[in-house]
Design a binder for these strands. Structure first.
Lengths: 138, 138
DNA sequence: CCTTGACCTTCCCATGGTGGGAAGGTCCAT
DNA sequence: ATGGACCTTCCCACCATGGGAAGGTCAAGG
């Protein structure tokens, strides 16, 4: 079978790129990707190039980039005269955001771990978790 | 001033609890809190008890609990015959979710760190970050 | 007493990505 | 020609939050 790209339908592009058909249409609707070509029956037709781009988007999503960031990354990707500085700036900013989010979640987890550790978890009602939520950490 | 609770309006409750007026109305609309009493002029009136509950919610949100979880925590909080086991189960499940999310974000951050580290970040177009998104990690 | 301004009310809209599903059209194999 | 797998568009929902419009209430000060 013509593996890569399949028959060029959205379903084949979805399978080949790892981006759901639903999301491909959404990306098109918000202008992240160019409107796909259409067949006689008004079906979207995806080329290898399109699928390559979708894979790019998929990987960027997997790294946690938002669609706005991906839009800029795609522009830079297509621009052979880009300064890598610009790419790095986007990556660094995203990395900083990730690290901040991680720190926040870790703070929550640490608190929760402490409280849960002190909770007997038995039939009795006394519970440091509820106590903390009730009174704030005293 | 009558510090705690202020004049009982939603603004005072918001200031006293750290939950925005907007969110208080929202919590009421989705049934997380009981509909507040109303004054002659149809203003919501918040008691100390209400504000206490809002603070509980605020702290639970700060620990990353979702509204559905908070709903269950509130029920347990109000139930003096609760088994602390039930509270702990909710906390443990949430902790596991937090830890999983942290691991995911850390994986993203690690990949991104490696790529960004290898990127010159200068005028030249060559960029391992785009290369990775283009080809997958080769 | 009446104005002013701060606050309240409800209602709608947007965010960000994702999925679900309905109603209808296309395409291919039997 | 029929059935089923796929496509199309369109609307709805999620979760928690904020913005803002249009209109009502209340208290202080002139």
């Amino acid at each position: 079978m013509a593996q890569p790209g399949g028959d060029g339908t959205i379903g084949a592009a979805a399978a080949a790129s790892g981006v759901s058909a639903k999301m491909i249409r959404y990306y098109e609707s918000v202008g992240l990707i160019r409107p796909a070509a259409r067949s006689d029956g008004n079906y979207r037709r995806f080329t290898e190039r399109d699928i390559h781009e979708l894979r790019f988007i998929r990987r960027a999503r997997d790294l946690g980039f938002g669609l706005a960031e991906i839009d800029r990354l795609l522009s830079l990707w297509r621009d052979r005269t880009r300064p890598s500085r610009d790419v790095k700036a986007i990556a660094d900013a995203h990395l900083a955001a990730l690290e901040q989010r991680i720190a926040e979640l870790q703070a929550m987890a640490a608190t929760l771990r402490t409280l849960a550790h002190c909770c007997a978890g038995d039939d009795r009602p006394d519970c440091p978790i509820l106590d903390d939520l009730d009174r704030g950490q005293p």
